[in-house]
Design a protein around this nucleic acid. Structure first.
Lengths: 114, 114
DNA sequence: TTCAGTACTAAGTGTTGCTAAATAGTGGTA
DNA sequence: TACCACTATTTAGCAACACTTAGTACTGAA
């Protein structure tokens, strides 16, 4: 992937995944697919799994193993209260950053107006 | 600083500094101060200097040593053509990310409308 | 002479996303 | 049967980046 996007995803990818889990529980493979649908076309699968391990370790989700008819069992992740809190903080931090960057000089405003 | 903002700055801080240099040449101490003015209140000075070393090594800026009446000589950084190109790419990548994140579910839209 | 303010350098740390390879279950097909 | 595609997860090693901390160096005021 472009180096720039890779670096930018640091610190945002967790929030992105958390926000997907806030809609409904999901497992890794499914999340990867949904990210692709949402335009995050080239995020490596390994990255998502590693991130899921991390948010599980941080107790932001509960985990349940569910059998699949199509392959190995799935690890289904469900956002818990701590996860929702973390997600709220993510949005707050993100909005702050967007706000500040919007006020930078020399902004390339190609996407203004929609 | 909040861990979340720290992580989010990865990949954006370079663009932020580049955009400040696009307005006019500046030296490290000055850039740090301007960042504080612009709401990036708790970015460590060491971080900026390290970043400046990096963009100099990547030849995105030209550097000139200028005497100061108030302390040691200043290293004044001026954005060059490669730096402007990198900055354009930064805005493009940033706008892409913003666009995608805007379409995420469960968006906390506290800052919509201004 | 001591201290605050200005100005820069550099070594070491932790977090994060990526690459790559391995493991494992299912169903289809040559 | 043997192989392959698709589904699904794990893990080891790497590179980039922001942070912390400590040090150097120059000026002017208390």
């Amino acid at each position: 992937m472009g180096t720039q996007m890779t670096e930018m995803l640091k610190g945002t990818l967790e929030g992105i995944v958390l926000s997907i889990l806030a809609e409904r529980p999901a497992y890794g493979y499914e999340i990867t697919a949904e990210l692709r649908d949402r335009g995050f076309t080239d995020i490596a699968e390994g990255t998502i799994y590693a991130l899921l391990v991390r948010i599980e370790r941080k107790s932001l989700v509960s985990v349940e193993k569910v059998a699949s008819e199509k392959g190995p069992p799935r690890k289904v992740f469900t956002l818990n209260a701590a996860g929702q809190l973390e997600l709220n903080e993510f949005w707050s931090t993100w909005n702050q950053l967007v706000e500040r960057i919007n006020h930078l000089p020399n902004q390339n405003n190609t996407s203004k107006g929609n």
